[in-house]
Design a protein around this nucleic acid. Sequence first.
DNA 1: TGTAAATTACGCACTATTCTGTAACCAAGC
DNA 2: GCTTGGTTACAGAATAGTGCGTAATTTACA
Lengths: 120, 120
Amino acid sequence: MKDVVSRCPIEETMRVLSGRWPTLLLYYLQDGTKRFSELRRDNPTVSHRILALELRKLEEAGIVRRTAHPGYPLRVDYDLTAPGRKLVPLIDALGAWWEHTEDDRINRPPTSEANLDTAA
Amino acid sequence: MKDVVSRCPIEETMRVLSGRWPTLLLYYLQDGTKRFSELRRDNPTVSHRILALELRKLEEAGIVRRTAHPGYPLRVDYDLTAPGRKLVPLIDALGAWWEHTEDDRINRPPTSEANLDTAA
DNA sequence: TGTAAATTACGCACTATTCTGTAACCAAGC
DNA sequence: GCTTGGTTACAGAATAGTGCGTAATTTACA
């Protein structure tokens, strides 16, 4: 999703949240500050390159704050900004929607109306 | 985003909604039934193939219902299922979040705490 | 005491995988 | 031969993973 096709805020939001990692990172950052290596441990299948890129994307979107402490070994903290924290319940609502609509989504009922299925 | 890394419903949801088109299609299907060709006119930059694939994905997720009328020329309608309609306000909330947090997201304030920025 | 090794959070180059677009083709009736 | 909604085949673009390098300090060990 390189560029945007509408000026709509929903598309802007999805440009940031699309993909496997952004919402997972939001989830893990809910309970406070985490270091880069902790986030890698939290989701072991993300590569370090992608984790760095995703975190930078979230930082640029103003959802995550990066705090680098000087000195070696390097030490960098990540936590949610105020907007990021406001975003969490909205994401949770999506998860709840998925769970609560499961039956309806799986056994799509004919919902009245002509339902002639896949045409010949 | 081929496979899933956690069993979490949020990730399942994002697997369906990720990308440029799903939320846009949701948006255009809000106001009722649309035909394939109408959806193409609504967002002219989506390719024929991708529109078909995206609609199929949404259909499989139980968000969109496909109704094919027999006869030629072909005629196929798409509209939202009950779960799909429930999803719309959640998506709108994300758009509202983007707009209402804009200032905070752009001019990230130091929010107290040590903010030593990019370390040496 | 001197030196080798580990540590952390990446950046870079390269490869692998996946996604998206283009074009052609199909069906059947008017 | 045009229509509509799709599928397939191929090509090109974008995204993701791998492995190496790096910085300054601590620790490990002889």
